[in-house]
Computed example of a mutant assay.
Amino acid sequence: MSGDSQKLLELAERCEKAERPDRGLDAEIHFRIKNGIGVGCASDAPAFTGSLDAALTLVPEGLSWTTGQNVHHLYWHTGVNRLNLGTGAPESVSCSAPTKSPALALCAAALRARAAIAKKTSKG
């Protein structure tokens, strides 16, 4: 597994374990996504872990997402997928994760999708 995809998976796991929005985690996600280019200071990072709108910007282009809440266990579950245009069937690019908020769930799923894409790209 490439170092980039491994780091994205580590960030996804941290999102899954987070109890609340985390500005430090936002900054690390921003740095990783931007490859450290033009990032500025941590306060410039979008609030990925606290805002569904900001987390949505992490979903790779061409993929769709769904989210919902398990009302019995009170966690959020999000998936990031693409449709196979030939069959119309969904192709999962990311496993989804239960988290404390929809923004954290979307961050985790989007980062897992990015990791899967990075891994596939690194293999050629």
Rank of each mutant, 00 (worst) to 15 (best):
A27P: 12
G62S: 08
G36P: 03
L63R: 12
A110G: 04
S43C: 13
S92C: 09
P21G: 12
S92P: 13
L83K: 12
F31L: 11
C41R: 15
D22Y: 08
K119D: 15
G79E: 14
L52Q: 13
E28W: 02
A89I: 09
E61Q: 13
C15M: 05
D53K: 10
D44E: 14
V71G: 02
S43F: 09
P60I: 03
L83H: 08
G40Q: 07
T121P: 01
H77P: 00
D22K: 06
R82N: 01
S96R: 07
T78D: 00
Q69M: 14
T49R: 05
S64T: 05
K100L: 10
S51D: 11
G24C: 07
S43T: 13
K123G: 12
V71Q: 04
K34H: 10
G50C: 09
R112M: 07
R20M: 15
V93A: 02
G3W: 06
T121S: 11
A115W: 01
G62K: 05
N35S: 14
A47E: 10
T49C: 13
H72V: 14
T78P: 07
S101W: 06
K17C: 02
G124E: 05
A116P: 01
P60C: 02
L74G: 11
A55M: 07
A45L: 03
